[in-house]
C-alpha cells in the first residue's frame, strides 16, 4: 500500500516537472535571439534569469552541429560553440533549421580561422 502511494507521489512530481519545463521552454522561447556580428556571436536566452552572452570569434576553439532523433524529424539542429577550457559548450543555439545551423558553423569557422591566422 505504502509503496503504491510512493509511486503515486513520484508520478505527480514528474508530471509537475514535465509541465513546468514545457511552459518554461515556451516562455523562454520568445526571448531567445542570436546574431552573428563582425567579430563575435551574441546569444540572448532565459526567462526568469535572462542572459546575453558574447563569444568573440578569436576565442572560439571549435563548434559543432548536432541533431537528435526528434530534431531530425522536424529538420532542426543545434549549434554548439566552444571556447578554451570548459568541457561544456559556451553557447548552445537549439532549434535552428539544419541549413541555417550549417551555414552558421561554416561562417564561424571561416571567421575563427581568419582571426587565428591574423
Amino acid at each position: 500500500m505504502e509503496a503504491k502511494l510512493d509511486h503515486y507521489h513520484r508520478g505527480i512530481a514528474w508530471l509537475l516537472f514535465a509541465i513546468s519545463s514545457f511552459f518554461l521552454t515556451i516562455l523562454s522561447f520568445r526571448y531567445k535571439a542570436y546574431a552573428l556580428r563582425e567579430h563575435d556571436v551574441i546569444y540572448r536566452s532565459g526567462w526568469l534569469v535572462q542572459s546575453v552572452r558574447v563569444c568573440p570569434f578569436n576565442r572560439i576553439q571549435h563548434c559543432s552541429v548536432d541533431s537528435g532523433v526528434i530534431d531530425r524529424r522536424y529538420g532542426l539542429s543545434s549549434l554548439s560553440v566552444y571556447t578554451a577550457g570548459g568541457a561544456e559548450a559556451d553557447m548552445k543555439l537549439a532549434g535552428l533549421p539544419k541549413d541555417v545551423a550549417d551555414d552558421m558553423r561554416d561562417f564561424i569557422l571561416s571567421k575563427t580561422n581568419k582571426e587565428h591566422s591574423a
Binding site: G46, L48, V49, Q50, S51, V52, R53, V54, C55, P56, R59, T83, A84, G85, G86, D90, M91
Partner: peptide, 27 residues
C-alpha cells in the same frame, strides 16, 4: 584572458536596473 562574457538579470534585478556580469575564463 577572458574567453566570453555574459550579462545576466533576474526579475528582481530587472526591476531595479541591476545586472550580474560573468567573465568566463579558460578555468
Amino acid at each position: 584572458n577572458i574567453q566570453s562574457v555574459a550579462i545576466r538579470q533576474g526579475i528582481y534585478q530587472r526591476r531595479h536596473g541591476l545586472a550580474t556580469l560573468r567573465l568566463y575564463t579558460a578555468d
